[in-house]
Design a protein around this nucleic acid. Sequence first.
DNA 1: ACAACCGATTGCGAAACGCAACCAGTATTA
DNA 2: TAATACTGGTTGCGTTTCGCAATCGGTTGT
Lengths: 170, 170
Amino acid sequence: MDADHRSGCPINLTLEMLGDRWSLIVIRDVMFGDRRHFRELLTQSEEGIASNILAARLKRLVAAGLLTKEPDPSHSQKAVYSLTGPAIELVPLIAQMGAWGRRHTPVSEELSIRAQLLEEGGPKLWAGFMDELRHIHLGAPKPRRSVLAELQAAYERVVAENAAKRKRGR
Amino acid sequence: MDADHRSGCPINLTLEMLGDRWSLIVIRDVMFGDRRHFRELLTQSEEGIASNILAARLKRLVAAGLLTKEPDPSHSQKAVYSLTGPAIELVPLIAQMGAWGRRHTPVSEELSIRAQLLEEGGPKLWAGFMDELRHIHLGAPKPRRSVLAELQAAYERVVAENAAKRKRGR
DNA sequence: ACAACCGATTGCGAAACGCAACCAGTATTA
DNA sequence: TAATACTGGTTGCGTTTCGCAATCGGTTGT
């Protein structure tokens, strides 16, 4: 086993790569929020990541082969971050993580609707979503169905419902 | 949303609870290695956790409701750690994590055979394994099939095979 | 010319990590 | 009964990481 790894256990090696409080948050935002630029990830994150932490995480994730960084042709300074194949294959893990969190942590309804749909959709939906991510991030052919749009629409529906509820409640 | 949480997103809340380099290692060892005592977790861990880190993690996991700590009747000083229901329901997440690690990290064959069987078995096997964990840790009725024994047997078979290979190779 | 925006970097205090030594109480053994 | 080993930890200490705020040089749009 490599000297730079604690063990060859798949759980351990995955934790060595993703076992911290920010890496999967960044991947989640690229994956579900389609945030491709540094500033988008910095300012539109629910959790408020600091810029130095974000820079460090992006660097590590690129080095680990989970993200790629390319110059944006439309802006000589802009960088575009994309998911790689391995990162896209994290979808089942993230779906299970969302499902567990939804059951066992104090989630907000609005932010857990995506996790609910992803759980209810099961492996078939995940596969469709992964196809869509391969289209967006890897240039694969465009699938008919857009899971991303469905998740976003459901989220907005819940936000609107809750806004209406709050209005009635006042 | 609570002031002590970064956001109500299920991914984030799960990471706040388990997003570090040791918590899931400890749960893995209790779950798959049936290590129930401090010393077992300390010395029989592949990764070599430090005793102060282990003590801190056990305390946190008990506080988070993922483990329980009880005195061992056979030894007035011994403590027994058990998985709770929520921890047992991490099985699908851990299975997906093992499956991903097996594909995308430099795992050792011996330590990844369990992940392979868990992946191939799918949700039905996971459910059987969870039933068995509920028997071991929560006193639920004993299921017919022992997934734990199957995983352990497969592991030992691979270890023996590789030992034979090494012997032939010399 | 100038303001806004781009992806970061720097400085700094606080917290977590990792290692080694150590501890008191309990059970086993000679 | 005295020594030994094992129990679940604790303590000290140096290193690394985290988290926050301010800042930076370069680019773009007005």
